[in-house]
Amino acid sequence: MQFALAIPTDADSWRVVRRAEELGFARAWFYDTQMLSADPFVAMAAAAVKTTRIRLGTGVLIPSNRIAPVAANAFASLNKLAPGRIDFGVGTGFTGRRAMGLGAIKLADLEKYVRVVMALLRGETVEAEIEQKTRLIRLLNPEIGLINIRDPIPLYLAASGPRARGLTAKLGAGWIAAGGDVESAVAGMADMRERRLPGAGRSRSKR
């Protein structure tokens, strides 16, 4: 079992992240909650240059609050500062959106967003909806090294409900579960394992 840190983001979170690294923590997750805390990409950038081993992830990014090309660029920029240590954690937006009186975004919109960000991070040309129009976009000159899309940036989904866990399995993403109750966590993992079985999505859709 590896230990990680979950941080209500402070502009100088790097201090506690650096200490966590010294203590052997494997990762730090930075909250993306604009009305409540500091900007995670600013804080992660500082942590990236002040640490050497610990992984740094958004915990979790809210798609509605950052358009996909901007998010992809931010991850690729961080990935230059901390090559191979960056994680893309994303969710439908409970905390960050509720602080503005909004509910979570639709899972279908989350899926579209994730596909665009991940395609951009693979250097692909991808269709994205921008200002209500679908157009082709691509990170145009990663080869000159201003950003880093060579080292992979793994995807993690925060998923509380069964449909979100299904999407996590469908995308082959890492799963972020939240809670303080072991019994529910164990039941959630059993469900997640079942959803990751080959053909699980098809058999469930027939039910």
């Binding site: 079992m1 840190l5 979950a6 209500p8 506690v16 972020i176 966590a185 993992m189 059993a190």
Partner: peptide, 10 residues
């Protein structure tokens, strides 16, 4: 149960 990481809020 199969969890590989526990993330603790500070």
């Amino acid at each position: 149960a199969g969890y590989s990481e526990i993330a603790l809020q500070v």
